[in-house]
């Protein structure tokens, strides 16, 4: 079931929530809508679901125009950020709700409902909790029930709004893997909203990066990470060091003032920043501000000659060899960087 979004715009009280969005979500994929809060990702998800109506544009499910269709008829599964479980119903009743609400002619028998709900509770590994009330469940368990409830009506697409937003870090990591695994079993076209780039990268087949009501870039996690098309995407997908500088005639980036043609910035990931005790042609002098051990890696904060704070990530071994101390004079050099002109266009991958 593919989803096609064409020219969708939405305004709330003169605030442009979505600005002419065009997007194709291929059948069977798990796609993340990623962006900072207020970028319009939740609005877009709710428009796909039919919980919100676009001012302009159309939504197609597998080539069929569903723009005018009500939320009841769209056959979507929606998992709410705060689960929206019916608090006065048991887990079983929550999952069975969608089946019980069908018109009498289409409604399954009690026996069928029973076995269907049992299957779903098995699928989300919640067997044995059918008689509990939502308030007796942990956050992670509620999330699973919300998912089972959404799947019960056999939706054509599954939509999840910040599905792990309200959970603590450990449960969140567990559930992420589990969702990925679940998607590999059921293969339903799924879209989920998140503001956490790590979550988007880990779970999804494809990531849609959004900002200020617009789509910035669409791609697989690797594509985005390696080939960000603009500074926003690059910065949003991970920590970054920014070097201000210039381009020469051959479009090479320099931090010094020779051969300046146009101003530009180089973006470097912390793990792509090499630290050395000895200067070399292109390296930049810097002072160590702090050394922080993060388990497997070591984070080094430095201050370069332009008085800009830099961040580098080294392996434990390398850090042991270098034996860095606060106040040490060192030289840094990017192993890999991405250069953008002042207007935000990509220059070259060095």
């Amino acid at each position: 079931m593919s989803i096609e979004i064409q020219n969708v715009s939405k305004t709330f009280n003169k605030f442009n929530a979505l600005n002419n969005i065009n997007l194709h979500i291929p059948t069977g994929e798990l796609v993340a809508l990623l962006g900072p809060s207020g970028c319009g990702k939740t609005t877009l998800l709710r428009i796909i679901a039919g919980l919100e109506f676009a001012d302009k544009g159309s939504i197609f499910f597998y080539g069929e125009d569903t723009t005018a269709r009500s939320v009841r008829d769209r056959q979507v599964g929606f998992v709410f950020q705060h689960y929206a479980l019916f608090r006065h119903m048991t887990v079983f009743e929550n999952v069975a709700f969608g089946l019980r609400m069908k018109p009498r002619a289409q409604r399954p028998s009690d026996k069928q409902i029973q076995s269907k709900v049992d299957d779903l509770l098995n699928l989300v590994q919640m067997q044995g909790l059918a008689d509990r009330f939502p308030r007796q469940l942990s956050g992670g368990q509620r999330q699973r029930i919300a998912l089972a409830r959404a799947l019960a009506v056999e939706p054509k697409v599954l939509l999840l709004d910040e599905p792990f937003g309200a959970l603590d870090t450990k449960v969140r990591k567990e559930l992420r893997r589990w969702l990925r695994h679940l998607h590999d079993t059921v293969h339903i076209t799924s879209v989920f909203v998140t503001h956490d780039q790590e979550e988007a990268m880990e779970v999804s087949d494809r990531v849609v990066v959004m900002n200020k009501g617009q789509v910035e870039q669409v791609g697989t996690p690797d594509e985005l990470y390696e080939h960000a098309v603009n500074p926003f995407v690059y910065q949003f997908l991970g920590n970054v060091n920014v070097f201000k500088g210039h381009l020469d005639q051959d479009s090479h980036f320099h931090t010094n003032d020779d051969n300046r043609v146009a101003s530009a910035s180089a973006y470097v990931r912390p793990h792509d920043l090499e630290i050395s005790r000895i200067a070399d042609g292109e390296s930049i002098a810097a002072t160590v501000l702090s050394v922080l051990s993060l388990g497997a890696t070591v984070r080094v904060e430095l201050l370069d000659v332009q008085d800009i704070t830099l961040e580098a990530e080294l392996s434990k071994e390398l850090s042991r060899t270098l034996d860095l101390k606060k106040g040490d004079q060192v030289f840094v050099k990017p192993k890999q960087m991405r250069v953008f002109t002042a207007s935000g266009a990509v220059v070259a991958a060095a």
Partner: peptide, 11 residues
């Protein structure tokens, strides 16, 4: 009209 919906709702 005085009493008009500010935002369309699915409810």
């Amino acid at each position: 009209m005085l009493l008009r919906l500010k935002q369309h709702s699915v409810l």
